[in-house]
Design a binder for these strands. Structure first.
Lengths: 108, 108
DNA sequence: AAATATATTCGTATTTTTACGACATACGAA
DNA sequence: TTCGTATGTCGTAAAAATACGAATATATTT
């Protein structure tokens, strides 16, 4: 049923980025990590009203998009926003959104 | 199972916007409408590799977020990007993304 | 080595998304 | 009014997302 391959690479990349941002929990995780109160997974789970396994799953999705990175620090894992990737996708999305604005010309 | 209400209104609004943008077909529809080759639903379905009912469903989702508007013109319906709403959500999203960038300070 | 702490993966259930064909509706033309 | 055209809705099916507890893996401490 997956016919999405037909669409351009750019649109697919933007869609994947948007999908990564399409859940409040993931937005909250990114915000939390960027504020860097603590980059430890367990603390995120304490902060959010979600179980550890669920948070871990959201972290995995963000990792797959490379929006965050994790580095092992003894028992714990320090997560960190990957600002390069974030910048890249943000630009991609914004250039798409800006074009939408510019070309809106069929006022009814 | 829906625990998303716990998150702030802003995060929820951004997540809904991102969700609307999270499918290549909807991105393609918005792009198509903004270029205004034709704002007729049927033409969109011809342009995209999707059935009319599927396109109609995507249009409904975009309508529910008020990212597009439709006005009846005889038999046909003219769809149009709602640039005010688009601008509003774009700003909301960008202010969120910018804050992420600024506050990234826990380099490993 | 055993106990403890942290984090991920597995199995599972529920919900949502995606997609389509068939049907229904509404308008305009013959 | 009947026919064709444009569009949306319904029913349904398959896939993906969401969520959790239990089990597992790994590292630290005792």
């Amino acid at each position: 049923m997956n016919k999405t391959d037909v669409f351009s690479d750019d649109l697919q990349a933007i869609a994947r980025f948007a999908k990564a941002l399409s859940h409040p929990a993931r937005l909250a995780i990114l915000k939390y990590l960027s504020e860097c109160k603590s980059c430890i997974s367990g603390n995120i789970a304490d902060y959010l009203p979600l179980s550890r396994s669920t948070v871990s799953q959201h972290l995995t999705e963000l990792k797959e998009m490379e929006l965050i990175q994790g580095s092992i620090d003894g028992l714990k894992i320090n997560y960190c926003v990957n600002s390069d990737k974030l910048k890249y996708y943000t630009q991609l999305l914004n250039s798409y959104l800006e074009k939408l604005q510019v070309e809106v010309n069929c006022k009814i």
